[in-house]
Design a protein around this nucleic acid. Sequence first.
RNA 1: UGGGGCAUGGUGCAAUGGCAGCACACCAGCCUUUGGAGCUGUGGAUCUUGGUUCGAAUCCAGGUGCCCCAGCCA
Length: 563
Amino acid sequence: MSLEETNPQGNNKPTDFIREAVAEDLKSGRFNYVRTRLPPEPNGYLHIGHVKAFMIDYLVAKENGGELVLRFDDTNPSKEETEFVEAIEEDARWLGIEWVKVTYASDYFGLLYDWAVQLVKKGLAYVDDQTPEEVSANRGTLTEPGKNSPFRNRSVEENLDLLERMKNGEFPDGSRILRAKIDMAHPNINMRDPAMYRIIHNPPHHRTGDAWKIYPMYDWSHGQNDSMEGITHSLCSLEYENHRPLYEWFLDQLGVFKPRQIEFARLNMNYTVMSKRKLRRLVEENIVNGWDDPRMPTLRAMRRRGYTAEAVLEFIRRVGVAKNYSVSAVSLLEACVREDLNKAALRRMAVIRPLKVVIDNYPDELVEEMDAVNNPEDPSAGSRKVPFSKVIYIEQDDFRETPPPKYYRLFPGNEVRLRYAYFVKCTHVVKNDAGEVVEVHATYDPTTRGGDSADGRKVKSTIHWVSAAHAKEVEIRMYDRLFTKEDPEEGDEGFLNCLNPKSLEILTGYVEPLLATPEVGSRFQFERLGYFCVDKDATPKKPVFNLTVNLKDAWAKMEKKGK
RNA sequence: UGGGGCAUGGUGCAAUGGCAGCACACCAGCCUUUGGAGCUGUGGAUCUUGGUUCGAAUCCAGGUGCCCCAGCCA
């Protein structure tokens, strides 16, 4: 096989069974173009699980020189709102997804009704007067066939008349449905005379208002809309596999353009929940502070937390596409976020759990401007000045009165480097009545300015600091996983019983003067701590920083293991 | 006891009858003015039984396990 045949584009694109199927269809001539569709129902906010499906639809079209249509699946007025249409578009745009047009299932209500009339005329659909309970009881079970409706053999004329009167609003909700006439004994339950239209008088539809009193079911709408729009590949998740025979049945009976439906495994992630119902409970029961609470798996939440679209996309790329049921690790997402932010985030010094240090031999009134590198990964980011003085704050974690083995940081008698400043050696501590260390005293070596010793002596640790007199007090929001279990839905106690009580911790810390009035949304690496971004709650008086993701902490891991 | 689908290191994905590989995680080391980043290295997987074949993760048959389906939701 030649290189051209295996690799028409001449590059090594990642491949998967969907892309292979699409390539086959193009090669065999089943289709001579590619058009996919993004079919969200506007009934909630997008979460990380949607991103996988969105990117498959978008990239399959893009890689094949095709088009993507953003089509809102708004066939059920009781669940859908315009607010979500806008939110979904905004989130999808943030991801960088491009579509040629926005359409709505409701755009096709008229045409779809005509198609339904066609099926009725062909004797392939009928109006059923059974109650919902009767319909359900007569559907049969997984192992037993269903029973035909007593209304199944109505005349075409009667069906036509009843359908029109359903449409005109003459009948109350639940009194009748239009059903496809297929086979009540079919082993696939979706084929047992599935409902096509149901009657819904209220609420009004978010776009068509009260123009319609009947609304199509997913099965009757989706495939037909795909066909009307000339969609070639209707890509969806595995639970629709059982619907494919019905998808194809409708299109075959209608004799219209027939797209190909291909199913893939949806994205699941550990330590979170993804179902709309559960996410809604978290919001409504004030377990989180809204849909954009940085602990939520929604895109708005991740954006607010400081995740970049690039990182999210890279995560999706690494997760891949297959048909296996799988649960991806949130730690992989975090790794992608770190990798992306490491390249560009400016480094700053911040102390989130302050401990006061007095450098006794440093002149009382002296202030020195220390040179600090903005980003060691990017020399073009330059450097900045950071003021240094006699009283500073360091991290509580960076001092121990009695150090455990392998602890290299500050403790009585030990010398460390203050990043970009001086070597300091701890001399003694001051304690409060409770016996807690409230102040550490140290001396500095004036010959080590900038952080290098003249005599070549080494220190094993470098710690960060801020000058107490120059620091800005800020609010720091430390986020952790919302749940303590990898699978919060597992077991009988339910997802609300494994909430992580420490998923949000609000701290008051200090940052270097350059961060006194940061721009909302800007991202920084607080050295040795993690990546942080400025929350929308920030005010000039009190900046607020969200923890985006922590830095890998080898010492914390070591210490934990030692216990 | 119906139908549809899926089984590869801890996790996620490759290998399309020909040396089981990649990423994250893990472990060890090097380096380091971030115990960060980076670099090097180690360990660990084809659900099971049989068959076809010179050769099987891949093909065939049986078994086992997991997921989906009985909305007038999508």
